[in-house]
Every structure is written in C-alpha cells, then in structure tokens.
Design a binder for these strands. Structure first.
Lengths: 392, 392
DNA sequence: TACTTTTACTCGGAGCACGAGTATATTTCC
DNA sequence: GGAAATATACTCGTGCTCCGAGTAAAAGTA
C-alpha cells in the first residue's frame, strides 16, 4: 500500500469512523466536526458515494435554509461479519456502518469440542460472505473465553482444549480478528455505552471468573497477543486457594459464583454463573437468609477492593460493571462502596472514578466486535484497497 | 491547525521520528524504510533542511556508487527541555533530535518544599529556553513520584505536599509534559533499551515502593491523567499491613526496602532505597547472614509472584526490571523464577515472557522524557507550527 | 580515462485540501 | 403567492505532496 494512497484515504477514514461512531449524523455536522472545508467536503462525499462507502438521505428537520443530508451506510457498502461464540451457542451476524446487525446463522455446540463444530461455524461464515459478494471486509470472533492471537485458550465453563479459530477467516484479504467477551463488551461501553467518550475506561465482567479491559480512547489495551485483560488471574485473593489456571490466589476465586458457593458452604457449582445469579436474585428479593447476605457482602467487598487496586493501577476516568458484578454491588452496596473507597490511594479518594453498570447486556460483546471490525474496515489501508476496485 | 497542514507534515513527522529512533540512519535507509519514492524524498528532505529540522552529513563508508548522507539534527533545529526532579536533586537539560543531552542547570532541594524551590527550577528552564530562542518545542518533567496531569502528588521519600508543576512551562506555545520516573524509564527501555521494539513491554521499577508502566509500541499506558502505573498500590500484599497511601495490603510493602527491613526485624528505614541496596550488596557479596538471605528470598518471591500476575493481566512480550528489582532477582534467582513461573496462567507458562534487567540506569527517566518531548515536537501539528515560521 | 555502481535530482502527472465566490433549497415574512 | 432570509452545497483556481520514469552525479574500479 503506497503512502500516497494511505494519505489520500485518511480523511475518508476519519469521516467514516465518525459516521460509525455517531449514526444519523448530518453531513453538515460531520464536516464541522472534522473541520473540513466546504469544497473538500463536496468532493470527499461524492468520492465516497461513488466508492459505495456512504449514502445520503434527506434530513427532514425544520428551520430555514437549504436542508442538509444524513450520512449513512451505502446499500452495497462494506459489512463486518461477527461470530459470537458465547456460552449458550454460536451465531454469525452481519453488521453495517450504521451498526445494524442481522443474524445470518446460529447453532449450538451440543457435546462437541471446537474441532467438531468449528467447521460448521466456518461454513456459516463462508455462506454469509458469499451471500454479499465482496462486501465483507472483516470477520470478528467474540469468544467467551481467554484468547491469544487467533487461538482460543480456554472457554467459559466447558473444558474444551485449546483450538485455533483461524478456520473462521472469511477468505483471502479478509482479516480475522479475535477478542474475548470482556474486552469487546468494554469496547461497546466505552464507545456507545455507559461511559461513552471516556479517555480511559475500566470494564469489569464477572462471569466464570473475572475478565475485563482497559479502554483508552475506545481502544482496548490487550497486550502482545490480545490475551491481556485477565484481571481474574491477578493474585489479589487467598494465596491458599489454587486456581484451575495453575496459579494460586487468583482474584477469580473471590468474586464469582464459586466464591459465593464457598462462603455459603456449598461445593463448587457446575455453572458458577447461573449459581451466582440465583443467589443474587434471592438476596435482591429480600427473602434470602443472612448467610446468603453475608456471602454476597464478602464477595462484593472482594470485588470493590480489587477494583480499587485496578483504579490505582490504571487511573481510569470511569469504571463499568458487567455480568454478575452489577448484582454483587446492588446486593451489598455499602460493602462494595466501603471496599472500593478504602482501597483507593489517597489522591483518588478525593475524587473517585464513578462506577457505572454496563448498559449493554448480552449484546455487548457483539456490538464491540462490530466496532472492532469497522475499525479495520475504515482504516486508510483497507479503504484504499476497497476504493481501488470500486471508484469510477 | 488545518487538516491539510497536518497531512502535509505527516510524512515529515514519520521521517523525523525515524531519525530520532535510529540516530545515524542514512538517507537511503530512511527512505527505504518509509517506502518513500525517490522524488518525494528529495523534496521532503530539502523542505526539512530549509525548515531547520534536519541536516545532512557525508556518510563515509567505502564501496562504489554515489555516497549517501547521514540524517541528523539541524544545528538550529528544535530542542526539548528535560527537567529531572530526582531524589538527589534537580537538573535542567536540553536534548536534540540525535538524543544528545547537555546539562543547562542543576541544584539541590535543601530542606525546601516544592513551593520553595520550584521558582528556582522554573527560572532555570526559562533561562535555558531564552538561551536558544525559538528552539525549545517542549518541556518534559521527569519526577520521582506520583503525578496526575501536571500535579506532583507524592515525591519519593520526602514528605512534600502536592504541588503543581505548571510553573515549569517554557512559555506560550511550549507544552509541558509531566511523567514519573518509572513510566519514563519504561519508555527508554522499550525504545532504545533492553526490549527495544517490543510491541508490549512491562517495566517494573522498585525504589521506594513499586512503579512501572505498560508500554505499547513504546507509548506508555498512563490512564486519564497520567497517574497510571502505580503497580505498588495493587492489593497483592498482606491485607493486615496499612500503606501510607491510605489503602491496605499494597504490593509496595512487600517488595522494597521496607519489606527487607520487616523480614530482618528492623524498623522502617528512613531511606528504604539505600537500605535495600545495602542489604542486596551484602547478600551479593556472599558475606550476609542467613537471615538476610531469607529476607531477600521472601522479597524476591513477592516480586516474582506479582510480576506473574501482571503478565497475566497485560500479556507483554517482555518484562524489564529497574531500581532494586534486578538486585532482588540476582540475590535469590531461584525464588524469583519459581514465584514468577508459578504465578503464570498455564498458557503463559509454556512460553513465559523473558524478564530482562534494564540497561538504562539513573539516566533512564531522562532519556524517556527526551523521547516523549520529541514525540510532541515531531508530531504533525507541532511541525506545521514550526514550519510555518521557518520555511523559505 | 572509461566503466560500473549506487544514489540523488528533474519534471510532468495525479489527487486532495483550501477558500472565496456562486448556486440551490427550504422556511419565514409580507 | 412572491420576496427575503437563511443555511447549505457546489464550482473552480491555487498550492501542496507523492509518484515514477528518466537523467545526472559522485564515488570506486579496471
């Protein structure tokens, strides 16, 4: 990719990213935001229309003056394919520049290992790509487990072996991105969710264990291979407890359904997420015994204290909670707040970063994956490739 | 700053950053690296010479063919002023595009608080800026303490009150950047030190407490206000120990001179860094009693275990150790390695990120500060401002 | 001195941003 | 219903950068 081509498409990239970030933005507003001169705007938008990257529709809002248009996705514009590998089953979706998602296929794992069902998923991806020829610019897999590069290392509760997700690639020239659900959920919160626009946001997901991400300007900090964000395997917990990950004292064991079970005197639950939700629902309804209340309190305290340490570490503007975490806080608000405040360094305590519940639920990871896909698609290099075939 | 000006200077920015990153690079090599066409190179370099941003010198290496030139700083090119506020005293230095640093002023704190000596330092900065009129494009303060924005929150061992370093600004249009020594030392290691070129590097500095930074492509992840990297205030330690920061269980207390003193049965030392160095030197020399050896072992273990957790968290390519940390590891290598390996998640254990001692010593923070200053100076916007007055 | 090798410069072409000036589409007012 | 007001979009000449093929230059080598 030549340097001049990248430069040529860099303004186009900015505009398309703005349109993605703020669906329904008008042409005038977008140009003003980019400080784009009037003539340049005309030429740029005409070029993007010609390249099937953008379409305009009348914006009918009152007031005098020549009406402007709303910028939106071109009907034959680029799409991102999202592969959702959640605990419940798999889905393949297609999303456009407006953030509209349509399900293309879905299925369940049954009793199969990844090697068993991945070909099926890959087939669904391929079918979706072929159904919209030339339009799919990226495939993004959202995985409910630990990942490294395109490898799945560990999956939710299921005891799957590690597997390479490379088979999900959508064909030559279509990059495959893989992210875990906590990271992608964090992206969704930082870009269009509870902490939209935060410069640095910390997202914490409690499911089976704890995952999360630090988002800087909406981009996740995921380390060399995308395996970062494993907050649950910081040794913030009891050093006498061995974690299935191989280490000891992992925070994981202090804040999820397994912690609640331990405090209540139950054995390790088969599905810690469902177990945790049940306990929290019971406490929430007010009909739970004191033992349950205390278990939630201890767990919320461990959550709050750990988050405080992570705030010391990352200095975020704000924190978002997802999965069981909002329920844990709601079930023992004082315990959580005490532990949170108490764990902050003095200078943070004067002005603690607000802790908000995530606004995206189960669709957070998929929304984040779509955003990541369009980051790729709307980059200058990818646009230059797209435009090379479609302009004029 | 108009968009066209930024675009115009963006290639210039890339070239200057390359020259900074690889001092002594030849014109040919630089153009090849940037994939810059021959004609564009001629025009670009002529423009940069004219703008006093670059100078060329004959590269005398044998072989046939027309000789190329070495790209270097212009004799009247931009400079960054570095203010070093270390535990020992303060210095003001000027650095150029080649990384050459010259000391412009220095002094000691005496018994003064920041409010007492900062005017003196600010005066020295002003004098340095005036001595090279128009050349200083950024002032960077390297502070041995916690910072937030341009505020100094806490300084090394001295019990100073928080203070605003804004007075160090070098005048209108000259931005002031503030970073702590752990962060800046990490930059130095990631760009020209032990882990040069690493995509994600974790730097750990043990001095009084633990600081550090995650460097992604050489850029530190420092959160919303630059206060990130306070690894020492993660609750990885004994929850019964109260930290001066206000929280409990801070890792700080487990890995620095205070930890060694506690394990040896000594009271909290007045200068934990010097205390730690003495103990480590003694153990290193082999003449220390078993009690000291065991103290170092326990401390090295706490260090290794914590770093393992941080590797789980950040997924770095490599880790660098600075301050007392190399000595702790050297004093109890098996204990450190055991704890490090033992704390890693299984998939990291198969291929643990290498842990290297930092190659920069006391000058690391200053070198990192200079790099940060030139990041600012060689950005497209700053170049456009510089070039607007000096071209033609 | 002539040849080889490597690098730098020349120059016409293409593309984008700028910005002042002009045209256009809508609402509001008379 | 028509004119004025208003907000927006388009036109076009200018300046800038990058491209790339061709040419010139500066060394070593025979």
């Amino acid at each position: 990719m030549s340097r001049s081509a990248r430069l040529r498409w860099s303004t186009a990239s900015e505009l398309l990213r703005l349109v993605y970030a703020e669906p329904g933005i008008t042409r005038t507003a977008a140009c003003e935001r980019l400080a784009l001169a009037s003539g340049a705007a005309t030429e740029l938008i005409e070029r993007l229309r010609g390249a099937r990257l953008l379409a305009e529709h009348r914006a009918d809002r009152g007031g005098p003056g020549r009406p402007t248009t709303v910028l939106g996705p071109h009907p034959r514009g680029p799409l991102a394919a999202v592969v959702d590998l959640s605990a419940a089953g798999w889905r393949v979706l297609l999303g456009d520049l407006a953030g509209a998602l349509t399900e293309a296929a879905a299925g369940s794992y049954g009793d199969r290992e990844p090697a068993g069902f991945l070909p099926e998923v890959a087939g669904a991806v391929g079918a979706a790509v072929r159904r919209e020829p030339g339009r799919v610019g990226a495939v993004v897999a959202a995985v409910a487990g630990a990942v490294s590069g395109t490898r799945l290392l560990q999956f939710s509760t299921r005891g799957w072996h590690a597997a390479d997700l490379g088979v999900l690639a959508g064909g030559p020239g279509v990059p495959l991105l893989v992210g875990n659900d906590a990271t992608l959920g964090g992206i969704a919160e930082a870009r269009g969710g509870a902490v939209r626009g935060a410069r640095a946001a910390l997202h914490i997901l409690v499911a089976v264990g704890v995952g999360g991400a630090l988002l800087v300007d909406g981009r996740p900090v995921t380390g060399a291979r995308g395996a970062g964000g494993e907050y649950g395997h910081l040794p913030l917990g009891d050093p006498d407890l061995a974690c299935p990950c191989g280490a000891r004292g992992c925070w994981d064991l202090m804040v999820d359904g397994r912690a609640l079970a331990r405090h209540r005197g139950d054995p390790v639950p088969r599905d810690p997420f469902a177990y945790g939700r049940n306990v929290l629902d019971a406490v929430r309804s007010g009909k739970a015994p004191d033992r349950d209340r205390r278990a939630v309190e201890r767990t919320a305290r461990a959550l709050g204290a750990g988050i405080a340490g992570l705030v010391n570490l990352h200095d975020p503007d704000a924190v978002t909670l997802a999965g069981l975490a909002p329920g844990l806080r709601a079930g023992a608000p004082e315990a959580f707040a005490d532990a949170y405040r108490g764990g902050l360094m003095a200078f943070h305590r004067a002005d603690p970063p607000p802790v908000a519940d995530a606004v995206h639920g189960a669709d957070g990871p998929v929304r984040g994956a779509l955003a990541l896909g369009f980051d790729e698609i709307t980059g200058p290099a990818a646009l230059a490739r797209w435009g090379a075939h479609r302009t004029r």
